[in-house]
Amino acid sequence: MEFVSPEGLRIDGRRPQELRALQCKFGVLSCCDGSALFQAGNTKVFAAVYGPRVADIRGQALHDRALIKCEYAHAAFSTGAARRRRGRSRKSTELAALVRGALEQTILVELLPRAQVEVCIQVLFADGGVTAACINAAMLAVADAGIPVRDMVAACGAGHLEAMPLLDLNHTEAATGGLEVCVALHPALDRVVLLQADAKASVDTLEAVTTLALQGCKAAAGAMREALLQHVRSLAARRGAI
């Protein structure tokens, strides 16, 4: 099966360096402090933020900064074939740790001592780029909750197939087992916060793919920013602040 046709189109009709269509919705859940729905192509992720609150386990509260907790779950129907998962699997712990790591660098934790910010992520459909989508959804939910952050954090994945770097792999492309990179970036500060790469590749290939992923991050950041601004403008207009 060829992943890039001779005309330069991938299996879903995109160009090699084209992101999937991004969609962001805010305030989708009513009981939490902030929530967001992030969709990249078919990958759909919900994120809800509770906090800042008193830490559940008082002993874990930190005296000078907030405690960030992250829970990850994916629906049984999220990956094509429905599979029942019992409790926490290793993959969910790993993904939750990655999202938490990205958020700890983003949220200004010194402003919220003793508090706990809990982020719950639910994947509704996983079609590649799940880690990136989770981080983006968590970022949008945190911004919706009004928790002070250093900068936006935008994540994007990229891969290398048929000697070509491809941006934002979907599930079919990622399943081949080639190089896959996930990068999370602070766009205004231009700093890479999270970087995960899998599968063997030469250093030059890795550099090319990572650079492409960085550009994807910047594009995703722009889209997320536009969505956030529009949401807040409409909120402020309704309350008469503008």
Binding site: L98, R191, Q196, A201
Partner: peptide, 13 residues
Amino acid sequence: GEVCALHKPGGIG
């Protein structure tokens, strides 16, 4: 000179 994996789970940018 090939890289099998990169792991940077958060931490300073």
